[in-house]
Simulated scan of single mutants.
Amino acid sequence: MKTVLVTGASTGIGAAAARHLAKQGWCVYAGVRKQSDADALHASTPGDLHPIILDVTKPDQIDSAVATISEGLKGARLSGLVNNAGIANMGPLALQPMDTFEAHFQVNVIGLMRVSQAFIPLLGADEARTGDPGRIVNITSVGGRLSAPFLGAYAATKHAVEGLTDALRRELVIYGIDAIAIGPGSVKTPIWDKAEEANSDGPYASSDWAKSLETFEQVMLKGGRTGLPPEKVAEVIETALDDPTPKARYAPVPDKLTNWYIPTHLPKRMLDKIFWKRFGLK
Rank of each mutant, 00 (worst) to 15 (best):
L81C: 11
A94H: 06
G25Q: 00
I52N: 03
L266H: 13
Y29H: 09
L257S: 12
W260P: 00
Q106H: 13
A76Y: 02
A148R: 10
D255P: 11
D132A: 03
R77G: 03
S186M: 12
G72S: 15
K232L: 12
I139Q: 02
V109Y: 03
G86V: 07
P254C: 13
L164A: 09
I262C: 10
T45W: 05
G144N: 04
H42T: 12
A43F: 07
G280W: 15
G176Q: 00
I174C: 08
M98C: 04
R170L: 12
Y261L: 09
Y261A: 05
Y154N: 03
F275N: 07
T45A: 12
P190M: 11
R33H: 02
V82W: 04
D178M: 03
W192P: 09
G163C: 09
A67G: 13
G134Y: 04
A40R: 01
P263F: 13
W26Q: 06
E71I: 08
A181G: 09
M1F: 03
A17F: 04
A160D: 02
H50Y: 10
V142A: 10
K34D: 11
L221Y: 06
L49H: 07
K247N: 11
E171H: 15
A155C: 15
G224D: 13
E235Y: 02
G223V: 14
R77N: 00
V233R: 02
K211D: 15
S70Y: 07
A22N: 00
P149F: 06
P184K: 08
Q106M: 11
S206D: 15
D60E: 15
A240E: 01
Q218V: 11
V32Q: 05
W209M: 14
T258Y: 15
T57A: 05
E231P: 01
S207I: 11
T3F: 10
P229E: 14
F101L: 01
I274L: 14
Q106P: 07
R170P: 08
K247A: 10
G227W: 07
H159R: 04
P97V: 06
I120D: 08
S207W: 08
A128F: 00
G202I: 11
P190G: 03
G25A: 06
A18K: 05
G144F: 05
I136W: 05
A88D: 10
E71M: 11
H104Y: 04
K2L: 03
L257E: 14
Q117S: 11
M270T: 15
L257A: 13
G91C: 03
P190E: 10
T239F: 02
L93N: 13
A18M: 00
G163L: 08
H42G: 12
T68N: 12
D243L: 00
G124S: 02
V56S: 01
W192F: 09
Q24F: 01
K58W: 06
A148Q: 10
L95A: 04
K188W: 04
A118P: 03
A153S: 06
K247M: 02
L164R: 04
L81F: 04
D48V: 05
V56T: 10
R170F: 06
R129Q: 04
H50I: 01
A155F: 00
R145P: 08
W26I: 01
I177L: 09
E197S: 12
G91S: 08
T57Y: 00
S207N: 11
I180Q: 04
F150Q: 05
W260R: 08
